[in-house]
Design a protein around this nucleic acid. Sequence first.
RNA 1: GCGCCCGUAGCUCAGCUGGAUAGAGUACCGCCCUCCGAAGGCGGGGGUCACAGGUUCGAAUCCUGUCGGGCGCGCCA
Length: 586
Amino acid sequence: MKSEIAALVRSALESLAEQGVLAADAVRDPVVERARDPAHDDFATNAAMVNSKAAGMKPRELAERLVAALPASPLIAETGIAGPGFINFRLAQDAHLAVVSQVLAQGEAYGRSDIGAGRRVQVEFVSANPTGPLHVGHGRGAAYGSVVADLLAAVGFEVHREYYVNDAGRQMDILATSVWLRYLELAGEELVFPSNGYKGDYVWDIAATLHRDHGDAYRHGADEVFAGIPADEPAGGDKEAHIDALIGRAKQLLGEPRYRFVFELGLNVILDDIRDDLEKFGVVYDQWYSERALVESGAVNKCIERLREAGHLYEKGGAWWFRSTGFGDEKDRVVVRDNGQTTYFASDIAYQLDKIERGFERVIDVWGADHHGYVPRVKAALQALGDDPDRLDVLLVQFAVLYEGGHKMQMSTRSGQFVTLRELRKDVGRDAARFFYIMRKCEQHLDFDLDLARSQSNDNPVHYVQYAHARICSVFRQAAEKGIDAGLSEGNSNLEHLSEEHEQALLKSIARYPEVVQSAAMNEEPHQLTHFLRDLANELHTYYNAHQFLVDDAALRDARLKLISATRQVLANGLGLIGISAPETM
RNA sequence: GCGCCCGUAGCUCAGCUGGAUAGAGUACCGCCCUCCGAAGGCGGGGGUCACAGGUUCGAAUCCUGUCGGGCGCGCCA
């Protein structure tokens, strides 16, 4: 509807330009928006105000000329000029009512569009290191990323969802070594676990699997393992040197095949767990992209070569540095360490490059806000390689803090004391978890109120929205029990009986839904949808409280049932888009 | 110290990319309840949009600075 009005306004501007009232090249695109205040009719445009200068006349004067130049349309009942020069439009009643039959005819498709025109977009999100289970911080990125992807798909983009698996790097070696050391403990060796190792219970579980299936096949004496290893931090040494030496020792004592086996076991168990966890959270990927495969394919080295040939690398202190400062980064970055190993950053350049070479027009990365300092160097690398850094859009998601009983829940990753996504999901349920995660825009810190999320009351926004849906379902069940014919009539018939204020409000909200989906998708702001759904649910509930639907007057009843049926459809569509169920009963 | 994000009602947050009298929920204060489906419904008070300048017809929104909070500044990932 909004786009139809905008077309009328543009047409008026064009005809004034033809008449020479406006300089054609100076015409500014006007904004058409829904009026917040019903006194300002349904839609308003600032076309006269933004172009008054180009026309050399006062806004209200230009507004009059524009109104006169508007093409006739059956949609518009009335136009007016108000305030500093707004042009207001009041829709014809028929245009208001038509949305009901439109929703009922389109069903699940209502709200979807094709403005993306099939353009290919890649969305990478979560991509947490497979060194342990996902925690509640990852949950926000998972919910946010998946909804952004779904929204883009809903407006016609071809979306590719991807998880980048950091299965190559030092952190994975630390995990493998942690598993092995726990295994040694289970096998009866006495040792002091490294302070920098992974201490979570899941490491014990993996170690236990290894011990159960392979007995002492991987056992070496603790004396042998720790012989000549530099001291750990608690013993006055350096924890990084300590763990690195242990990794080296593990590789040496186990040999390549056995070390690899422990490594793979840890990786696979955790990755399976993450995959399962996300799936139950309603998050599915088109691809799990392995960093190791990227390294082994030679893509990383090729990428480094390209940078070297283009003169963007230099050697210093035995390491190879990328001159990212030449592209706006704060400092230069190492891509090849003095020990010959490529850095995580080097893999990431290759990965980002690979994405663009795969032909995605847009690449969206969802990262935790603590990685924000990383953005300039990645963009710098893309630019250095001759690609447009603007094709990569990094969305930074701020932290989520859990509150219970009005108190912040303290978490620390180091000690392994964190709430996992799985625990949260089992606690408050998938629907509430998803809704709460996306309720706030991503750059806003999220206070996650566990008590509220668990609550089965109307204070809980998820419950409130779902209840609206269930309530409508209940009306139809009630009709069946009472033997009332709730079969809906075709088209727009009877809708003219919808004259109550509550009904007008619902009609407008339902009509607004496609605009909300579009705006939420294009701005990557899922919270627009949760806010909309809350408002729509509220309108349904107040309507419900104020009026009886199953009235004796068959025509009125039909009109009202059609309206709430359309409302139910929009609620279901909206909830579906954010991955939340639309229950028929609570 | 430098960089990024945030600062709107007591609290949690919207504010559609510069528009009309800044809105919800919750909390608070009044009335009304037993109604298709309980866990309620209706109404009300509450604001120097952190602060100071600037840009223009017009600023919560854009620019600069100050203050306050969060995060980041590794040959870690």
